[in-house]
Computed example of a mutant assay.
Amino acid sequence: MSEFTTLIWEESGDRVTVRLNRPEVRNAIDETMVAELHEVCARLENDPKILILTGCEHEGRGIFVSGADIGQLRQRRRDDALRGINNTIFNRIATLPAPVIAAIDGYALGGGLELALAADFRVATERAKFGQPETGLGIIAAAGGLWRLRKLVGESLAKEILLAGRILDGAEAREASLINELHAPEQLDDAAQAFADRIAAQDPLAVRISKAVMALPESAHPSVDNIAQAVLFESEAKFDRMQAFLDRKKNR
C-alpha cells in the first residue's frame, strides 16, 4: 500500500505478501521498517491471513535482510536495548494468529536471520546466507537468535554460528533443518505461494488454534489441548470436513 515506504504490501484472498524494500542498503532494518512491520501486524491481528515475508532484488541479486541498520544501531544505548525494538516486532510476528512464511534469497544476517526465525516456516535458495555476526560487532543476537536458533539447529551448531561467526548457505541450512525447503531463485516466489496453498487447504480455525496451543509452555498441556479440541469439536468446519472425508472414502 502507498503509505509504506520500506515495504511493499500485496494482498490476495487468504494471504498477504510483504516485500521488504530498501535495496539501496540491502534491506537493513531501521526504525521506519520496524514501525511499518508493526502496522502489518496490527492489520493481520485484526484480519488474520497467511503472511509471506520476502525481500527484493538489487543489481540482479536477491536480498532478504542484511541485518540491522548499523548506523542507527551504533547510536543506541542501554535504554534502547531495554525497549527491545527488534525483539518486540519479531515476537509480534512470531505470535501472529495465522502462519508466517519467510522466503529468503541472499543475505539473512543478524536481524535478518532473527526475522526469518520468527516465521513459522522458511523457504530459501542455495545462494542464501544465514548468520548471526553480532559478537563481531560487540553485541549479542538479542532479538531471538540466542534461543530460537538453538531450538531449530541444536546447541552445537547454534554456538558455532553465534560465537564463532559461521555463515550457512542454503544447502547447509536445509541440512541443519533451519529451512523447510530449498528452491532455485527464479522459483522462490512460486514455492512460497505453493507452501501457503498447503496451509490454506487446512481448516483456518484449526490451524490458528494449533499454532496458539503449540506456543504454550509444556506445563499447560494436556489440559489446554482438551479445551482447544472442545472448541473445534463444535465447529461447522469439523462436521463438514469429516463428512466430506467419509463421502470420499465411501465412493472409492
Rank of each mutant, 00 (worst) to 15 (best):
M1Q: 08
T5L: 09
T5Y: 05
T6A: 13
W9Y: 14
E10T: 11
E10F: 07
R15E: 10
R15P: 10
V16C: 11
V16A: 07
N21M: 02
E24F: 07
D30E: 06
V34G: 05
H38I: 03
H38F: 09
C41N: 05
T54E: 07
G55M: 06
C56L: 08
H58Y: 12
H58T: 10
G62Y: 07
D69R: 03
D69E: 11
I70E: 13
Q72A: 11
R76P: 01
F90K: 02
A94M: 05
D105T: 10
A108D: 04
L113P: 06
L113T: 11
A119P: 02
F121N: 06
R122S: 10
R122W: 01
A124Y: 00
T135R: 15
G138Y: 09
G138A: 05
A142E: 13
L149V: 03
K151G: 06
L152Y: 08
I161C: 06
L162F: 00
L163G: 01
G165K: 03
G165R: 01
R166E: 10
G170P: 05
L178W: 04
N180K: 12
Q187G: 04
D189T: 12
D190M: 07
P204F: 00
L205S: 10
A206H: 14
V207Y: 00
A212G: 02
M214C: 13
A215V: 04
A215G: 10
L216D: 04
E218S: 12
A220G: 12
P222K: 06
V224S: 01
D225H: 12
I227F: 12
I227Q: 14
V231C: 08
F233W: 07
F233K: 11
E236G: 04
K238W: 09
K238G: 00
R241A: 07
F245L: 13
L246T: 06
D247M: 09
N251P: 00
R252D: 13
R252H: 11
